[in-house]
């Protein structure tokens, strides 16, 4: 089918704890979990961490289905990583480590990325000292992914309705077939960027003055409890359980 689904990039707030937590706390937990994933080279630990993160995210964020969909998209990459390592080491367990590591990294990132709106995302970066011009460009880019994929679908539909076919001919011809889609895509994107720039100017947007956000981030006791319990659970879960299980499963 020619349609591009932009659902994976669309932020939809759900009635779950992770959506209500201060994004800075979520970012901290996500980075901590990613660090654990990176420094761990033990397969049992990584598998346990994967299972734990899946339960953690599905209970606190209700986004397991979305995560599974993202992991499904990554499956070819996971398989390639496994095969590439296997061809070098000829050891299944050693080859599985980087593959499972990728899964834990994706799960860890999702704690923050799938539960934080583009607005909160840029606000978090701003609070962390990133210049406003960069955070604005970043949040606009995030919004643009959805807008551009919608635009791409509409342009493709318009060209198909004009009788153009995208899957006709050899490789060179197939590349040429995309010209009727790429040209309006580029022109309309530039037009849209100019519109946004003008709108920001008209609304008096300036980058040389300090901004006071309309929705500010506030850290509450709940955020502190969340952060501490998450860090402790990941750490406790990681060390002793790994040692205990290693006694029974000789990996």
């Amino acid at each position: 089918m020619y349609r591009i689904s932009y659902k994976a990039f669309k932020f939809e707030a759900k009635d779950a704890l992770l959506y209500r937590i201060d994004p800075r706390a979520k970012l901290f937990v996500a980075l901590y979990s990613m660090t654990i994933s990176i420094i761990t080279f033990d397969l049992t630990t990584l598998i346990l961490l994967t299972i734990y993160l899946m339960i953690y995210i599905s209970l606190l964020g209700k986004i397991l289905r979305k995560i599974m969909r993202n992991l499904l998209v990554l499956t070819p990459l996971i398989i390639i990583i496994f095969l590439a390592n296997y061809l070098v080491t000829f050891n299944i367990i050693t080859s599985l480590v980087p593959a499972v590591k990728l899964i834990t990294l994706v799960l860890s990132m999702n704690i923050f990325f799938l539960t934080t709106s583009p607005d909160d995302f840029s606000l978090t970066l701003e609070k962390l000292g990133v210049p406003l011009t960069i955070t604005l460009a970043f949040s606009l880019s995030l919004r643009f992914i959805i807008v551009l994929s919608k635009q791409l679908n509409e342009i493709t539909e318009a060209q198909l309705s004009r009788g153009y076919t995208l899957d006709r001919g050899g490789l060179i011809q197939r590349i040429k077939n995309f010209i009727p889609i790429l040209v309006p895509m580029i022109v309309l994107s530039i037009k849209r960027s100019i519109d946004i720039a003008e709108t920001l100017e008209v609304r008096g947007f300036r980058t040389d003055v300090k901004h006071t956000p309309y929705h500010d981030l506030k850290t509450t006791r709940r955020d502190v409890v969340f952060t501490l319990s998450s860090i402790v659970s990941i750490t406790i879960f990681y060390y002793p359980l790994q040692d205990i299980l290693s006694l029974f499963i000789p990996l």
Binding site: E154, A158, S161, R162, G163, I181, P184
Partner: peptide, 19 residues
């Protein structure tokens, strides 16, 4: 590609079809 020979659609924003 075959049906569009019989049925032509002009969408709301024509500029999306120009290249």
């Amino acid at each position: 590609s075959e049906l569009s020979r019989k049925v032509a659609i002009v969408f709301q924003y024509p500029e999306k079809m120009f290249f």
